[in-house]
Write a protein that binds this DNA or RNA. Structure first.
Length: 520
RNA sequence: GGUCCCUUCGUCUAUCGGUUAGGACGAGAGAUUUUCAUUCUCUAAAGAGGGGUUCGAUUCCCCUAGGGACUACCA
């Protein structure tokens, strides 16, 4: 059994955009598969036809493409264990439902939703199980002829799993160790519904994992309570010798307050909970995505991986996907839920941003400028990045306070680099920086500096420094901040010689004359 | 309500019975600086509570409290 090739799967249901928690689950599966030289399968669990959302499947695939998480087989990836879309596996499930029925491990039930509701209202804490199934309309309480005739006349029914009460079922969880649940608390789960000729999650999941030779099931903690049911299903089918091992991951929690991380939290605090931007076809709502917010895929994976897993002491938190493959260890996953810290997520992105070569910023930066109607050359953009990429950006923290932080996202670039491409059109006299640095004599000083700059022959940063530094010394003026006001319009930006060199002599002097006139 | 899971700085976490309980984000202070930053240095900050076991518990066990998940013809 331990000799089997490692095979894991990520099996979302296409009911909407992929939640960031799902991304982490997929990432852990990916790391585990790579590390063991195994396969990662992408399966679509669309057994609930009523919840299908068009575009969701494509969205999920695109998300993983962007994140750099590669699948070995599955929907859109091929493979010899298909089809990988559960709605296309009806024939298979039908056969296994039959097998359970024939072995007396399952039975047919005709209770309508209304009847079930009535029972729930009648009996407190009603559960369809060994104590109550005798009260219901099913193949255990009805005679075979009646059952057959109902089926033949097309009356909808479901197949329920017959659970024997009073048995302790042990789950050997790779993260949590031994977890024991008594079968008495389990209900006779619906495995199949005739109405749409589709199984429910539980049956489809076990059948597929078995047929696809899955060796390890790594999934969210929300599945832990149904793990015993799944074990019982493996037994009922006689597949215990190849039953996968389970690992239940802790949940991702809200950054502030209690509870599971939800889409609302992201909207409220201004961070995405989805990898890509999502336009809901039903509500028309748009949810922001990490990609569109200017996150780098590597940073997202890196940050997410560390929410619930830690390689231990002495290892840098900045890790590539390959690093993580090498270091990953399910037994080092934590058991408790992790609050989602989006401030740290931004820090991770910052680290990934500044470690890129300046030229690597160009495509994103150019796209950003294009939105503003600005064209530039790759050389110029690289130059701007070199000057600016470590600069400040303002953000609002969870308490609603304005804070300053180093640039973390490509999308932060526009307000910070605007002045490279667009001259200040007006000056805010109330601006603290301008107020402080623009005195009565400043206009004269700036005019003198402008005159001097006109004479500079080598208008490069080094050329300027060589000529202007001595002049500044001679005249004894401190032109930096006022000069900054002229060229930038506010108290930010790169080294003044570098900026002037970038703008060129003509533009530099033009901006200065304009400022002198405007602030007169 | 029932079942199960969980509990170390504000947050993510390290520690696999003996440590001044370590790191990272965030916060504060200082240094550097041609603005805002960056960078560097430093500081504050934690074992939920109560019982055991033990020479010795953050670590093992029990109880309490708190948090979470599940409890569908959804996954």
């Amino acid at each position: 059994m331990s000799q089997r090739r490692v095979r894991v799967r990520f099996a979302p249901s296409p009911t909407g955009p992929l939640h960031i928690g799902g991304v982490r689950t997929a990432l852990y599966n990916y790391l585990f598969a790579r590390q063991h030289g195994g396969d990662l399968i992408f399966r679509i669990e669309d057994t609930d036809s009523t919840r299908f959302v068009p575009g969701a499947e494509e969205y999920i695939i695109e998300s993983f493409q962007w994140l750099g998480i590669k699948f070995d087989e599955g929907v859109g990836f091929g493979g010899s264990h298909g089809p990988y879309r559960q709605s296309e596996r009806r024939d298979i499930y039908r056969k296994y439902v039959r097998q359970l029925l024939d072995n007396g491990k399952a039975y047919i039930a005709f209770d309508t939703p209304q009847e079930l509701d009535a029972k729930r209202a009648e009996i407190e804490n009603f559960q369809y199980d060994s104590r109550t199934r005798g009260l219901m309309r099913n193949s255990l309480t009805m005679n075979p002829e009646e059952v057959k005739s109902l089926i033949d006349t097309g009356v909808p029914y479901v197949v329920r799993f017959l659970i024997e009460p009073g048995e302790d079922i042990h789950v050997d969880d790779m993260i949590r160790g031994d977890v024991c649940i008594n079968s008495s608390i389990l209900d006779d789960k619906v495995l199949y519904k005739s109405a749409d000729d589709l199984p429910t999650y539980h049956l489809a999941n076990i059948v597929d994992d078995h047929l696809m030779e899955v060796t390890h099931v790594i999934r969210g903690e929300e599945w832990l309570p149904s793990a015993p049911l799944h074990i019982l299903l493996y037994r009922a089918f006689g597949w215990t010798d190849t039953m996968p091992r389970f690992a239940h991951l802790p949940l991702l929690l809200k950054p502030i307050g209690n509870g599971k991380l939800s889409k609302r939290d992201g909207d409220k605090l201004g961070f995405p909970v989805f990898p890509l931007e999502w336009h809901d076809p039903k509500s028309g709502e748009t949810s922001s995505g990490y990609r569109e917010k200017g996150y780098l895929p590597g940073a997202v994976c890196n940050f997410l991986a560390l929410l619930g897993w830690n390689p231990g002491e002495g290892q840098s938190e900045i890790m590539s996907l390959d690093d993580m493959v090498r270091l990953f260890d399910l037994s080092k996953c934590s058991k408790n839920g992790a609050k989602f810290d989006y401030i740290k997520a931004a820090w991770f992105n910052h680290q990934y941003m500044i470690s890129r070569d300046d030229s690597e910023w160009v495509p994103d930066f150019a796209a950003l400028l294009r939105e503003q109607g600005i064209q530039s050359t790759p050389e110029k953009l690289t130059e701007v990045v070199r000057m600016m990429k470590l600069k400040v950006v303002e953000y609002t923290d969870a308490q609603g306070n304005k804070k300053k932080r180093n640039i973390s996202f490509i999308t932060d670039m526009w307000p910070l680099t605007r002045f490279f491409f667009v001259a200040p059109a007006q000056f805010d006299r109330e601006d603290k920086f301008i107020k402080k640095n623009w005195k009565e004599t400043t206009a004269t000083d700036m005019a003198a500096l402008a005159d001097r700059l006109e004479e500079v022959s080598d208008f490069s940063a080094t050329g300027l420094k060589a000529e202007i530094d001595p002049w500044v010394e001679e005249t004894g003026m401190k032109p930096w901040n006022a000069w900054r006001v002229c060229l930038v319009g506010e108290g930010q930006g790169p080294d003044m010689y570098e900026l002037a060199a970038f703008l060129g002599k003509e533009e530099t002097v033009r901006r200065m004359r304009f400022a002198i006139q405007s602030l007169a």
